[in-house]
């Protein structure tokens, strides 16, 4: 009959609640899994570098000198991925840290042959080729694989500024010549486009660079 309908629906209540609770637990778990997966699959850590240029940047043509005294131009880099850093050899800590990590990148990319490591000097009058050579040897730099570049101050500063870093005119008398985020490591693809900036002082940076290189190699344009 109809009257028992109410009591009959009563026992269904806890069941509905159980199902509801069960379902919400499932939904929450699924959501959690999605979040964890998203977190685990996140791209390599990009430490915020707020003042880096927002517009797409490309390596500009240049003519500089390597630490072994040989001239190097942009033409020598064609078809390679570039791992780029900025240094002054009078530096006490940051350049040492970054160079140690680039040495790891050099070791890890030696066999592939498609990666060129480049360190631009921000203090080129001090960092003449023999000075850079001494620095390069500390990090077992291979003169073919890892260029440490110097040259005319105006030219090398132009290349850094036009291709990679912005500059604070109030700080040009600093050893970094006013370049912001000069502790960055930049990654350039085979077409010469700057694709990533990493915090060169982050402990995981060599792994992050290698991971990003691996991703870039998968792109059609870079095959």
């Amino acid at each position: 009959m109809t009257p028992p309908a109410a009591p009959a629906s009563r026992p269904r209540d806890p069941v509905t609640r159980e199902i509801a609770i069960f379902l919400s637990v499932i939904v929450l778990l699924a959501l959690g899994m999605v979040l964890v997966t998203a977190f685990l699959r996140r791209p390599p850590i990009h430490v915020p570098m707020p003042e880096l240029p927002s517009a797409a940047r490309k390596l500009v043509p240049f003519s500089l000198v390597n630490w072994d005294g040989r001239p190097v131009t942009h033409a020598d880099l064609q078809g390679k991925f570039l791992v780029v850093s900025f240094l002054f050899t009078s530096c006490s800590a940051t350049c040492t840290e970054i160079s140690r990590r680039l040495e790891q990148v050099q070791t890890a990319t030696a066999a592939a042959g498609d990666v060129q490591i480049i360190s631009f000097s921000m203090d080129p009058r001090t960092d003449q080729p023999p000075v850079l050579a001494q620095f390069a040897r500390r990090w077992n730099a291979d003169p073919q694989h890892w260029f440490l570049l110097t040259g005319e101050k105006a030219e090398i500063h132009r290349v850094i500024e036009a291709s990679f870093l912005s500059r604070d005119p109030a700080l040009v008398d600093q050893p970094s010549a006013g370049f912001r985020q000069h502790y960055a490591i930049a990654l350039v693809d085979r077409s010469g486009a700057v694709r990533h900036y990493f915090n060169g002082l982050a402990p995981t940076v060599s792994a992050d660079v290698l991971h990003a290189l691996h991703e870039l190699r998968k792109e059609k344009a870079n095959l």
């Binding site: 002054f88 009078s90 001090t126 600093q174 050893p175």
Partner: peptide, 13 residues
């Protein structure tokens, strides 16, 4: 070139 870093100074020569 010079820049203060705490009680030290980063500089060239």
């Amino acid at each position: 070139k010079y820049a203060r870093e705490g009680s030290s100074i980063s500089h060239n020569l």
